[in-house]
């Protein structure tokens, strides 16, 4: 699945960052450096970012501007990273967050 917006009547959608690779739950996906992690993984068809603490319910993109924390994942061993406001860097290792995930 590809969800990138490529042709747009108003917007110029060329990417400024280099194309790089990141790993999400062991799977390598393509991303652009500097874009929000959430955008890259959504494009790869991944919609669940974390599971809640008590009921283990899935959560994903809700506000897109860093307000709700539903998009929190474990990024390079650090838990509770809001992926909608954290830019991609080449080689990042990202994991779906389970509950409060202590990180590593």
């Amino acid at each position: 699945m590809c969800l990138r917006v490529d042709h747009h009547v108003i917007l110029d959608c060329t990417h400024v960052g280099d194309e790089v690779e990141i790993t999400v739950d062991g799977k390598v996906i393509k991303a652009y450096e500097g874009e929000p992690i959430l955008a890259a993984i959504l494009n790869a068809g991944i919609k669940i970012n974390r599971y809640t603490v008590k009921r283990k319910e899935p959560r994903g993109l809700f506000c897109g501007i860093g307000q709700c924390t539903d998009c929190a994942m474990v990024v390079d061993g650090k838990a509770n990273v809001r992926t909608c406001i954290t830019p991609v860097k080449a080689g990042m290792v990202i994991k779906t967050q389970d509950g409060l995930a202590k990180g590593e």
Binding site: V5, L11, A39, A40, L42, K47, L61, F62, C63, G64
Partner: peptide, 25 residues
């Protein structure tokens, strides 16, 4: 309403217009 895929309209707007990725089809 908490199921992934339910989101604010502004969140959908941010995804397409700023991040250039569709929130869904």
């Amino acid at each position: 309403w908490t199921t992934p895929g339910v989101m604010g309209a502004g969140a959908a707007q941010t995804m397409i217009n700023v991040n250039h990725v569709k929130p869904g089809q």
